[in-house]
Amino acid sequence: MLEVRGLTAGYQGGDVIRDIGFHVDEGEAVMIIGSNGAGKTSLFRAVLGLLQPSSGNVVFQGEGISGLAAQRIARLGISFVPAERHLFPRMTVQDNLALGAYPNRPDPKTMKVVLDLFPRLAERRRQHAGTMSGGEQQMLAVGRALMSEPRLLVLDEPTTGLAPKLAAEAYQALRTLKGSGLTVLVAEQQVPLAMALSDRGYVLENGVISKEGTSAELAKDPDVRRSYLGIA
């Protein structure tokens, strides 16, 4: 469904990610794990059109999308939830969700699915997004991303700033979504949570992919265990 080949991108100071290749198949959940500064965010920004790659290819459902503007990519069926969320703070929960369906009017059925998944949002429909707690904002960011009925949901560190209980809840919601057939790509530092969700994973270190495998394989890998699972 999504295939990335030889992707290199960075900022003026030099390349942050180099020659990255990975793929996500329909119905899968795939994780990209790595420590802070490994390049996870730059990788996602380059895949989603927020950062111009200097070379490489991104193919989504057979169509080359590298170099397209983020707003074009968003309309092709990929929804991205960035770590900073980028909600519309002085707009209501309802309006934030409605804009997720842009340029269409929000579909009541999709709205119901989202509000059933996150009942907290239903209780707070008229509240401004900026006044909500971190956990609620994360729910809203995911909810907004779902309103366009994407084929692929991409999340950058969805647990950023969340207490452990809320982080676990966020992943519970992702499991539900995956169970309903949605393809999920997630970058995460909290590896155990991501590992429980994902079928496969890639390890990103200093801007290159150093390891890949099924979640079970990675869980057994001594380097992964030491660096990311805290097991000696």
Binding site: L50, Q71, A74, H86, F88, P89, M91, L99, Y102
Partner: peptide, 21 residues
């Protein structure tokens, strides 16, 4: 919808691009 889309750009330009505006 169009009016809200315009406001969303004022609120958070990157967020607006992510929903396809």
């Amino acid at each position: 919808t169009l009016g809200r889309a315009i406001r969303s750009v004022i609120e958070d330009e990157q967020g607006a691009r992510l929903v396809g505006i």
